[in-house]
Amino acid sequence: MKIPLIAIAVLLAVSPAAALDGVDILKKVDANLQPESFESYRKLINVEPNGAKREYLLWTLKKGDDKIASLFLAPASEKGRGTLRLGDNMWLYIPTVGKPIRITSLQSVVGGVFNNADIMQLDYHVEYDVRAVEEQGGEYFLDLKAKSTAVAYDQLKMWVDRKRLLPIRIECYAATGLLIKTLYFKEPKAFDDGRVRPSILETDSPLYKGYRSFMVYARIKKRVVPDEVFTLDFLPRLETMR
């Protein structure tokens, strides 16, 4: 009687379904990419086909699964602009304009290939279900499907470094199957909490031929701030939290 039980246990242990828990992998990827609550400084660089560049410096606060707020520090034309995301709700605050206005995930507050969903990215496991997972050499391949139509990309194909459990490349698709963009995670480095993470996120898109955008993480530091910081009325005061 003991032999069949051991055999079943061994079979379960080596079967792909038991060995590969896609949700677990995705959660680990999220945890390795960024702490649950943190502040960061990022530089966005849009590069045009002729080599001309446009750079933006952002300071960002994130808390938990669904709260993220960003403030533009440079260039001068964008300075003071703030963005807030609470779950599926997104707002843009422009200091001279009235109250913060609701914006959508597919728009881009900076132009270029990155859109608002990329700039205010929540954890992947919050927005996506794992449809399939498989091993491909030294990588995991995850096929992800958006949990709701409010998510910017309907489907993601994610290749993950098996050893570090960090994404290498993500292809983002519309519901029609159209490839919207590809994200490349590069230049891993140790951040303030000692964790090694990609410091550069590069993207290109068949919809913007010849254009590329980079998101460079200069600092990521664990920080927990009160929930009230992530509110519409606080957005004009976000600078005071730096």
């Binding site: 400084y41 530089k43 660089i45 590069v47 002729n50 080599g51 001309a52 560049k53 446009r54 410096l57 520090l73 440079a74 590069k186 230049e187 480095k189 410091s199 550069i200 590069e202 590329r212 980079f214 460079v216 200069a218 600092r219």
Partner: peptide, 20 residues
Amino acid sequence: AAAGAQSTNDIRLEDIEKEI
């Protein structure tokens, strides 16, 4: 802007740190 293809090698983290 100065023309020329941008690559990740052209991104200097220390310059960004100074700006921050």
